[in-house]
Design a binder for these strands. Sequence first.
DNA 1: TTCCGACAGTGGGGTCGCAAT
DNA 2: ATTGCGACCCCACTATCGGAA
Length: 512
Amino acid sequence: MLLTRLARVSREVAATSARSRKIALLAELFRDADADDVPIVIPYLAGRLPQGRLGIGWKILSRPVPPASEPSLTVREVDARLTELGAVTGTGSQAERARLMGELMAAATEDEQRFLFGLISGEVRQGALDAVAVEGLAEATGAPGADVRRAVMLAGSLQTVAQALLSHGPEALDGFRLTVGRPVLPMLAHTASSVSEAVEKLGACAVEEKLDGIRVQLHRDGDDVRIYTRTLDDITDRLPELTSMARELAHTRFILDGEVIALDENGRPRSFQETAGRVGSRVDVATAAKTVPVSPVFFDALSVDGQDLLDLPFTERHAELARLVPEPMRVRRTLVDGPADLPAAERFLADTLDRGHEGVVVKALDAPYSAGRRGASWLKVKPVHTLDLVVLAAEWGHGRRTGKLSNLHLGARNPDGSFAMLGKTFKGMTDAMLAWQTERLQELAVEDNGYVVTVRPELVVEIAYDGLQKSTRYPAGVTLRFARVVRYREDKPPAEADTVGTLLAAHPEVAR
DNA sequence: TTCCGACAGTGGGGTCGCAAT
DNA sequence: ATTGCGACCCCACTATCGGAA
């Protein structure tokens, strides 16, 4: 199949907002693909590269290359070239990869170049990624959508399922079962604004500590132990202490879901930056493990002794977990019958925060494990802080925000009346706010370099954020975590905006 | 030879708008 | 009304390459 066909379909998919139409377009293309094209066409149209990392980013991609006049590239040729490119390592590899990329781009038409750019930079912007491709695949093969979705969650990969489905038909889906050693997409949580809201929604529930660490899925089959991240990357080699712990458990075949976190000598959590840095270390794992040991904390069991627990209610899965894993390695929790028990839930949240953790996750006791979904039966609750900050500048948006000032640069007041930038945010604004701030900020503009519009620091905006973290990037040495806009405060002059001093005082553990 | 800046890739994420249910 | 998905981009970290010191 020719790449130009994919480029055209991708453009058509982007042009329609109806999901049903997107699905139909993808299905038509999947039907026409040769068996050998399938493992490439499917991920391409789901906006993903089968190769994963290529070592090619925005920098290299934005070098202009004159396009070919006639389409000639086949998807298989593109895939082969990218595989070759990704395999280049060692001295001079960066330049060699850039050269190969240039060659590929030169063989592509303008349309194809645009498609490749989006694919490799990870910004396809066609309004259809994995989930829509799954529906398209279902439509193309006549298999029920729910069955295909479930198979993808269990296989952890769309390609695998697509190949089986297209070569053997819908019966092939039966082959995708929960298997120890093969990672499953983890269940995710929604956010609730308070414990009472969460408990009212869920009724009988467990309130569990939310730890600010790295999600892990632990598989053990005899002596073989594997550890996967939220995106199913294999990080077994980076967490040797977890492997030995898993081998010491009495049972020999299981899949557990949990979190790893670095704790200090008093058992209090170290900063997320320290945990993430430790888990991200690959080169000298032994030293990293010694200086920043991590502790596992499990909260769910997906499989025990060959039995698939996914469809069991949480209560029963947790009973299995408790049988498997000793108490110190299970997440702290409390059970709540419903809204009448609210005070106990609130108390648990307060205690959790006192112990230095992020918040709680409230989980319905009767819910199954919805692999790969942001299920409504898990609700996280974290305290939210707010600040009144001053807009220092704004960046021009992309995609559906093209032509709008989007990403705000936020500043807190210094004692001398100047402002210290604390970070940026593009979150929390409605289309109406986006339109309004584009106008208003242009009135305040002192400079526009085509990318950033610098403004007079006169507009105050209320910002919500989750916490403070250390920063080497910003002048105050700190930055906001997960900052989002709440509302504009035109009633408030910048001289009354929050100061760096009050911010640091509110987070003594970070300010140190 | 060693150091350091730039880039790529991965971890953590919240909120909005729209289509579909 | 509610749910699911994609889009919008953030910051910190590590690893790697390639040029400067």
